[in-house]
Write a protein that binds this DNA or RNA. Structure first.
Lengths: 226, 226
DNA sequence: GTCTATAACCGGATAGAC
DNA sequence: GTCTATCCGGTTATAGAC
């Protein structure tokens, strides 16, 4: 279990540093593993339904070890939540990469859909927390998210002024995109049930993606007709 | 607290019947009140986070009374869920009233949006349950919901054949409508935060409704160009 | 039917050995 | 750092007085 350190190392100082780094890395690995399974367990049972014992069991540890890495269940949950927010903001940068509504919206929708595919549990934890309306996320809603939305509104309104988009309320358009993409994570159970109890294949998922892209683009974008 | 019964009643039998009905009604009222506040509390805290004590307090009763009306927390929760499903199926009949995609989709979206406006808590409880992916709703997903979706697919595909709609996967279109409309219930906290911490006014909500209707219609409906 | 008091249980957190 | 044993608060459910 202890890190394997070569006995051939000439410099003791170097060996010591090696061990230090290794321990830090191991701690990091422990945290990462716990965060990963915690996201799963919180998504499956909600904050109150999830138990530290189960998180431990999924990580192959007794629950006392969880408390060694994270002082409390609440703190662990907040870390999971923060990681989801970071991920979300990362994906939302896709919006900025083009000065053309069709390209920007397509890239953004695809990025959000990929997140729903790869991190459905993160999306569920987030959805849950928002539905509860608790104070844990109020700060984020009123600062980073608010700012991001306002900056996107400026862009969308500019596209509308230029005649590249039909006049549409930017916020309600964003809500439609968030809802349509996150649905594939938050409601995956329902989608599976309606797909003969099989998860969507990659092909089906791509079809779902382009369905959303097409509807949104045809719904709001004005194309030049030369 | 006991029902007021007129002393002028001539027939004892009638009086007795009156009392019987009245008691039944009172029991019904008790159940309805509890179901109403239970939906609220379950929506706010989730199944495990909600406590029978709080449900009782919100209904002005000690928790033992809740157990008098509903044998367990689990049973009460299931009743709340069933009521939400019934409501959902009721609204979904709006889809059937027209043999024209634009009219049908508009009516359906409006009905779903009205539900999000009037019963956001029901929507949250449902969303939560689906996200958990538990067995409580599996039967419904695999029977009534599946059948409803399949029958709608037939209609949508017919509209496509007739050239009234662009070729689009019916299921993915339905998911987009569900997601976009339910979002206004499930994510109301987020929407409020992004609206200067004020709930959407009736005017704003109508604007959101027509935003969804317009995007979906322009996204999928083909209009005759005479 | 309604309410108080209590039983039985469970989960988060910690003490302390290793 | 890791794990076992334990404490303590809170929750469901019920017994039993009124």
């Amino acid at each position: 279990m202890t890190p394997v350190v070569s006995h051939h190392l000439t410099y003791l100082a170097r060996e010591k540093q090696q061990i230090t780094i290794s321990n830090a890395q191991r701690r990091q690995q422990g945290e990462d593993l716990i965060l990963k399974v915690a996201e799963e367990v919180f998504a499956k049972h909600g904050f109150h339904g999830a138990t530290v014992t189960e998180i431990g069991k999924c990580a192959g540890l007794p629950k006392a070890n969880i408390h060694y890495y994270f002082s409390s269940k609440e703190k662990l949950y907040q870390r999971v939540l923060e990681d989801v927010i970071d991920l979300w903001l990362e994906a939302s940068q896709q919006f900025e990469d083009f000065d053309d509504p069709a390209k920007s919206l397509t890239a953004y929708i695809n990025a959000k859909m990929d997140l729903s595919r790869t991190r459905p549990n993160g999306s569920k934890v987030w959805a849950n927390e928002v539905a509860r309306g608790g104070s844990r996320i109020q700060t984020h809603l009123n600062t980073r998210l608010k700012q991001w939305v306002e900056s996107r509104e400026v862009w969308i309104n500019r596209w509308i002024e230029r005649g590249q988009m039909r006049p549409v309320n930017a916020k309600y358009l964003l809500y439609m995109i968030w809802a349509s993409t996150q649905h594939y994570a938050d409601f995956d159970t329902q989608i599976i049930a309606l797909n003969n109890n099989k998860p969507l294949s990659d092909e089906q998922f791509e079809e779902a993606k382009s369905c959303i892209v097409e509807v949104i683009l045809k719904g709001v974008v004005i194309y030049d007709n030369p």
